[in-house]
Nucleic acid binder design. Structure first.
Lengths: 133, 133
DNA sequence: CGTTACGTTTACGTTAACGTCATGTGTGCT
DNA sequence: AGCACACATGACGTTAACGTAAACGTAACG
């Protein structure tokens, strides 16, 4: 049975990060590993959070932004005003992400065009080289 | 007729960047403004490049990555090997961007789910508050 | 019992991408 | 001529997100 608690090394291997990074995230209150003596033990919750952190980073969100968003996934027993604030924040991020996706789609198509153009140029160059021989 | 050459200030106003940023991009060889005496004059080409730079940044690419990609849009008269190298680089970036888009789509859907869940919680809390009154 | 492996804290170093400040120069207006 | 003003060039400062090194604890292994 796969242990639900991971040591720092197992965590690093599993998610391809360094120990320094995990300690840094803990210091920034993004993760809250438990302790066995001095050792850190990363729970399922920490693992889920780390996945979200890494994903957020790939989308260009700062750690501070991510920290606030993480609350959304672990609401549990919040006050009403806090919950409303979190929802509002989420709305903004959602809009951000949708805009980013749309713009990304456009950029992808443009890049594809440029590449087919480049491919044509290459084909021409090869023809010319073939003639030289 | 809208002048095709922009001064640094016009450029800043048009694209919402600071002079420092434009000089920095020039130092990093991302832009190549001409000179009238000492003054910089940003050509159409520089403006197009700046748009691509800003877009690249929004997608989380580093300036160095962007610099290399910009070549793709200004191939003109490259050598064959250089052109091939550029195409290869573009393929990787394209794959990157597509993966990013797909992952982004998934994250968007997940976030939406969390938000409807949060909305339900909010509705419950409001019911309870209404009863208290 | 020494040492090897893994973990900890503390502190200083590093890189990217600019911001900020001091100082100098050319340009047009009055 | 005098002056403001936009722009130029260094040079140093700043922030985020870690890297790296020093100095120490502890558990297992031969």
């Amino acid at each position: 049975m796969t242990e639900t608690q991971l040591t720092i090394r197992e965590m690093c291997d599993a998610y391809d990060v360094t120990p320094r990074t995990l300690r840094f995230y803990e210091a920034k209150e993004l993760l809250f590993p438990e302790r066995r003596g001095q050792q850190r033990l990363f729970t399922k919750r920490d693992q889920a959070r780390l996945k979200l952190i890494l994903r957020g980073k790939r989308f260009g969100f700062s750690l501070e932004e991510i920290r606030q968003l993480l609350d959304l996934y672990y609401v549990g027993d919040q006050q009403r005003t806090q919950l409303e604030r979190t929802q509002e924040l989420a709305r903004k991020h959602l809009a951000d992400m949708q805009a980013q996706r749309d713009e990304l789609q456009i950029a992808i198509e443009e890049l594809k065009e440029q590449m087919t153009w480049g491919a044509k140029r290459l084909a021409e160059l090869e023809k010319i080289e073939a003639q030289k021989i």
